[in-house]
Amino acid sequence: MSFMNYKEMLNLFSTNVLSLETSNESCEGIIEKDIENMRIYKRNYLQLCFSNFSNDFPATKSYVGKNNFLFFTRSFLLDKGLGSVNIFKSSESFLFYLKGLDAAKEDRLIFELALIDFLWAYAKLKEIKVTDGVLEYWQELTSKKKTKKKIDFTKLVKIKLVEIDNERAFKLCDL
């Protein structure tokens, strides 16, 4: 007969993994051996989200760099966590999490690039407003084709996702 109930066991295991900390002390009462292998479950949790967000936000990742992007993913998981069985829904939460970060407040391109990434990946937003020149910069980051257009921080543009001959494309609209 076990002395710990199933719910307590799930609490300990889940909390330990979601903490992403190296210590596994809290699980000593439930795990017989190989407790250090809890790191596999922590690595899986971080890796899965990192690769999911990397797929959905390629320009943002390229702009901030891999290490910063991993740091943003990690802090998102620690602050918010994944709140849906559908992993794809987490990208929307991540987008708005990015918006609130100090780094994004200091550099508006982080959120604007993430907004374009998200629109491209999910076609969920009707239209978005971004700084003039950011769309061309997004295209440069995702296709590696250099743009001559300069970013004009004094001007905003509106972007829509449209379909032309069954292909997705961005359309610039009047404000």
């Binding site: 609490n11 295991f13 889940s14 993994v17 979601l18 479950y41 949790y45 899965l48 994944l82 709140g83």
Partner: peptide
């Protein structure tokens, strides 16, 4: 794979 409304997206 989830507990207390938190999703691990893993096979625990």
């Amino acid at each position: 794979s989830s507990h207390n409304g938190k999703y691990h997206h893993d096979l625990l």
